[in-house]
Amino acid sequence: METTKTYQSYFIILVFLLVVSFVLNLSLGSVSIPLKEVFNILFGSETTKSSWQFILLDYRLPKAITAILAGSGLAVSGLLMQTLFRNPLAGPFVLGLSSGASLGVAILILGAGLFGGALGGLLLSSWSLIIASALGSFLVLLAVLSVTFKVKDTMAILIIGLMFGSVTAAVVSVLSYFSEAEQLQQFIFWSFGSLGNVSWEGVILLSLCCFIGIVLSFISVKPLNALLLGENYAKSMGLNMKKTVLLIIIATSLLAGGITAFAGPIAFVGMAVPHLTRQYFKTSNHLILLPAVLISGAILMLLCDTVAQLPFSEYTLPINAITSLLGAPVVIWLIVRKRKLLF
């Protein structure tokens, strides 16, 4: 796909912003750590306070990395969904992927109570969380897609996605109704979304999920570009539609499912970031958009997390609330300013 200009300067700015928001995210929190000390600790030099070292390395660093992974992964899965469904409204949240992941986790956490004790503990390992959540989003996406082959109208598909979302939400409610208070609390905290509860082991698992998802997305760059013309044109240019759809589904469910498993359902990032990126890059070429969305998603998530930490206070707000509070006005502003949301 021939693009009309080079984007080097754009990417330099993005990477610079990413580094700034990363450092900002590390240094701000309930305990403020001076910038100089942050660098000292990061680069292994002596530090004045060992508690700072502990906070930074065992809490804030994994949290910041989770934020980067979650932001990039959700934004990329949003981009994939928007192109696959050829609809600007699509995103992991709108299409019911996040609800599917919730259902998987709900069945796991709330169902674990039924098995009780040791078995319950075993069930709740990071692996089983990821599998349950990715499986949940995979199944919902598959259901939405099987309908897509029958219903050609993309608006109808979105409505069906929303319906699947509400069905899974209803099943979650029924499960909650029958479960113990302890499990329910655990599930509710999970559903607020949190980047801070991920251990180093979890970070590695999540990175693996995101890495595979992102590699699959890059493999799909050319088919994604072809899909911009619509399915019929894409096929006429030799695109293997089944293989493409399968690749995109696997990538999206790994990304959205894996992230939701660890960080809880996070709204708006998946839908808003691709739009913001298209606004500034003014291209539809996925070879440019994909890395741009990847970095922008990370920046947005780091900033949201920094706000959620409520610097200099002991409180932390749910990350899900912050992304919605910041994301919704941005999307509204975008649509009002442009008077339309072109995809």
Partner: peptide, 30 residues
């Protein structure tokens, strides 16, 4: 083929759209 349906993405530039026609001949990133 040239179909009656409009391209799905309205933000494609003319050059981008036409260059998509080269897809059968280009490498894996196009």
């Amino acid at each position: 083929i040239v179909l009656t349906e409009a391209p799905a993405s309205k933000t494609l530039s003319v050059l981008e759209l036409i260059s998509l026609g080269r897809q059968p001949y280009t490498n894996w990133v196009g």
